[in-house]
Computed example of a mutant assay.
Amino acid sequence: MFPTFVRRLAQSAKEPLTKRVPLTVANNPYKARKVWPPDFKELTHQQQLRFEKKYKRRITLASRSPRWEKGVKYAQLITIAAALVWLLFYSEFEWWGQKYKPSEELRKHANNLFGVLDPEKRYERRKDAPEVNPSKTPESK
């Protein structure tokens, strides 16, 4: 493996690097198979329609950005959810001729994440929770 590597390093390149570096239309080794854009005057109506469909499809595929679309959808969802929460818990408005005002208790629960972070109940323990300091049992010898 090592002798092959040394031998390949010692060989000269097939083309000089200076000839390959400035790629232009004239010296591009990768020639296009078809002329683009095609001359539409030489094509039939059906071929023109086919090219237009292909071009439109490629443009839409190239312009798609799934991550951006997903982010926009999440932003819309968060905005709508926040607007509904604000509307139901904090705003006062008239609904079909009746005034709507959320109760203070509802606002208090909404402020404390529905009782989870309520300062009055912060240190309460659930009935099924284990003891904080269980009594130590003597170890058997």
Rank of each mutant, 00 (worst) to 15 (best):
V85M: 15
P16Q: 13
V116M: 10
L23A: 11
T44K: 08
L106V: 07
L117E: 13
E69N: 13
R8H: 04
K141M: 13
F89M: 11
L9A: 15
R67D: 12
N111H: 04
K41Y: 03
K141I: 14
V85K: 15
V72G: 03
E124A: 09
P22H: 08
Y74E: 15
T24G: 09
E69S: 14
V21T: 10
L49I: 10
L113M: 05
N111C: 06
A62Q: 13
L88V: 01
W86Y: 10
F89Y: 09
R58L: 12
V6W: 02
Y100M: 05
R57F: 03
N27P: 01
K127A: 13
L77Y: 06
L61G: 09
Y100H: 01
D39R: 01
A81E: 12
T18Q: 10
L17W: 03
P130K: 14
E42G: 06
E105W: 11
V6G: 05
F2G: 13
W95G: 05
R67F: 06
P16Y: 06
W96D: 12
F93Q: 01
T4S: 14
S103H: 02
D118N: 12
V116S: 10
W86S: 09
S103D: 02
L9M: 15
K54P: 02
I80W: 02
V35P: 00
L17N: 05
Q76K: 14
P130G: 14
L61I: 08
E139V: 10
D128F: 03
L84F: 09
S65L: 11
V132R: 12
K99I: 03
Q48C: 15
S140C: 06
R58K: 10
Y55N: 15
R125F: 01
L117Q: 13
E120Y: 02
L117R: 14
V116K: 12
Y30S: 14
L43M: 08
L49S: 13
P37W: 00
Q76A: 15
R7V: 08
W96G: 06
A13L: 04
A83W: 00
N111W: 05
R8Q: 07
E94S: 12
L17P: 01
A13Y: 04
R67E: 13
A82D: 07
R33V: 04
R20I: 08
K99S: 06
I59A: 14
Y100L: 03
